[in-house]
């Protein structure tokens, strides 16, 4: 138990520091990297709680996919740090007062023992499948929110495409499907023209005539 406590407090301390650095780091790339660290340590805490599937999903999905993409975006954007920090000092006094007040209020309420004390979880036997349990709960008890969340993602896709997909007037893009389906009549134009014969041939024809 002692070792587990030690691991938990270490991970929790790293998580808090990383979380704090995400919002205080001057460089956005550093902030994104600290967020990666925060995800990683959170995954460690989940492992301590025996939530292996969630821990691995967090590393694979968030660290592996989302944050890498995010890092690329942050590096591509030319963020003007000075403009972002404009007005920081003029807003600081009132923001500090409000922030400190809220922090004190929350500390007063949350430090009391108001929450329901959950019983200490019993360790699961070997061979217990976290993934199967999660799947079962998602598709039975939480079926409705799960499916609605899927619709939410669809809306996000539709919105992203509707807002960004545009046909540029100067684009030289050609639709391959249309290109393949092209017919002869689309490209070759048959023009009927009056026949023209050489004057000598005309004479010869006239001579042939009686």
């Amino acid at each position: 138990m002692i070792f587990q406590d030690f691991v938990f407090y270490t991970l929790a301390a790293i998580l808090l520091i990383a979380g704090l650095r995400v919002i205080t780091a001057r460089n956005p790339v550093h902030a994104a990297l600290f967020l990666v660290l925060a995800f990683f340590t959170a995954a460690g805490i989940w492992l301590l709680l025996e939530a292996e599937f969630l821990a691995i999903a967090l590393v694979l999905v968030y660290v592996g996919a989302v944050m890498v993409l995010f890092l690329f975006v942050v590096m591509m954007l030319d963020i003007n740090l000075d403009r972002l920090r404009e007005g920081f000092w003029s807003y600081l006094p009132i923001a500090a007062v409000v922030g400190v007040l809220m922090a004190v209020e929350m500390a007063l309420v949350l430090s009391g023992r108001y929450f329901i004390e959950a019983a200490a979880p019993v360790a699961k036997p070997a061979g217990y499948s976290n993934t199967a349990e999660l799947g079962r709960v998602l598709y039975t008890d939480y079926l409705l929110p799960f499916e609605l969340a899927a619709v939410l993602l669809l809306v996000a896709i539709v919105a992203a495409i509707a807002l960004t997909l545009r046909e540029r007037k100067d684009s030289k893009f050609i639709d391959p499907a249309a290109q393949v389906q092209v017919k002869r009549n689309d490209r070759v134009r048959m023009v009927s023209m009056p026949s023209y014969t050489e004057p000598e041939a005309e004479q010869a024809q006239q001579e042939l005539k009686p």
Binding site: Y142, P145, L148, V151, L152, V155, V158, A162, L163
Partner: peptide, 25 residues
Amino acid sequence: QHFLTLYIGLELLSLSLYALVALDR
């Protein structure tokens, strides 16, 4: 009838509205 359903319903509405407001790109 559940905090989660209410919240997801609200987000479904809000997300669609954000996109609709910006639709005139």
